[in-house]
Simulated assay, not measured.
Amino acid sequence: MGASIERVVTSGMFALDGGEWEVDNNVWLVGDDREVLVVDAAHDATAIAAAVGDRRVVAIVCTHAHNDHVNAAIELARATGAEIHLHPHDEVLWKLAHPDHVPDRPLADGDTFTVAGTRLRVLHTPGHAPGAICLYAPDLGALFSGDTLFAGGPGATGRSHSDFGTIIDSIRDRLLVLPADTVVYTGHGDATTIGDEAPHLDEWIARGA
């Protein structure tokens, strides 16, 4: 039996640049009945650990370091013994959430994780955050996009450490080249597909110009 994908929705506050917003986050578990990889430990380590159960956590992978995506990472790591992986370009954001701790492992473009016999590849996709990454699992036809790509367009770029032109380049050059039937599992809200989003690239550029 190959890997499957599970979603845990957690709720809390996103805080940046002096503002706070209530958000629901998607936490993705990829694996089988023996082991899982956690994508974005958001808000509620207890709820995530309950969904993991007695399975081994091979890694806690952060798609970026906005507080709403990493605020449960340290507690979950302590509970499971798993290591936290983050792209080093996002250390400035990580320190806002966890000033007294550091991630365990750096992520780099092209890195791979294997869980339940399924390989996931790291794609560095800056723009929403400088160290933003996506995880692509070709055998599952799945992309875990964090806040880089949503159903309806790019992630937000109106706050510190973000850039609209950069996120457009990331989406066009790294994501929209994937197979059209690739399912995009987002950091918030509903999933979409590469094929559903690709025709709207010019609209996003015009809207953001």
Rank of each mutant, 00 (worst) to 15 (best):
M1Q: 10
G2Y: 06
S4R: 13
I5D: 04
R7V: 05
R7H: 11
V8T: 05
T10E: 01
S11W: 11
F14Q: 08
F14S: 09
L16P: 00
G18Y: 02
G19P: 10
W21A: 14
V23K: 12
D24T: 05
D24R: 14
D24E: 13
N26I: 00
V27N: 03
L29H: 02
D33A: 13
E35Y: 05
L37W: 07
L37C: 10
V38T: 02
H43G: 12
A45C: 10
A47T: 12
A47F: 07
A50F: 09
A51N: 02
V52Y: 05
G53P: 04
G53M: 00
D54H: 15
V58F: 09
V58N: 07
I60A: 10
V61W: 08
H64K: 11
H64F: 11
N67A: 11
D68I: 06
H69M: 10
I74V: 15
E75L: 03
L76Y: 00
A77G: 12
A77Y: 03
A77T: 02
H89V: 03
H89E: 13
D90G: 12
W94V: 00
A97M: 06
H98A: 07
A108Q: 11
D109F: 04
D111T: 03
F113H: 07
T114E: 10
V115R: 06
V115D: 01
T118G: 13
L120R: 08
R121Y: 14
T125E: 09
H128K: 08
H128G: 14
G131I: 01
I133M: 03
A137D: 03
A142S: 06
L143Q: 08
D147R: 08
T148P: 02
A151D: 13
A151M: 07
A156R: 09
R159L: 12
S160T: 13
T166P: 08
T166F: 07
I167P: 05
I167T: 12
I167Y: 08
S170M: 01
D173I: 03
R174S: 09
R174E: 11
V177R: 11
L178V: 07
P179Q: 05
Y185Q: 05
G187D: 02
H188T: 14
H188A: 11
G189H: 02
A191K: 09
T192M: 04
T193G: 04
D196G: 12
E197W: 00
L201Y: 06
L201G: 05
I205D: 06
A206E: 08
R207D: 14
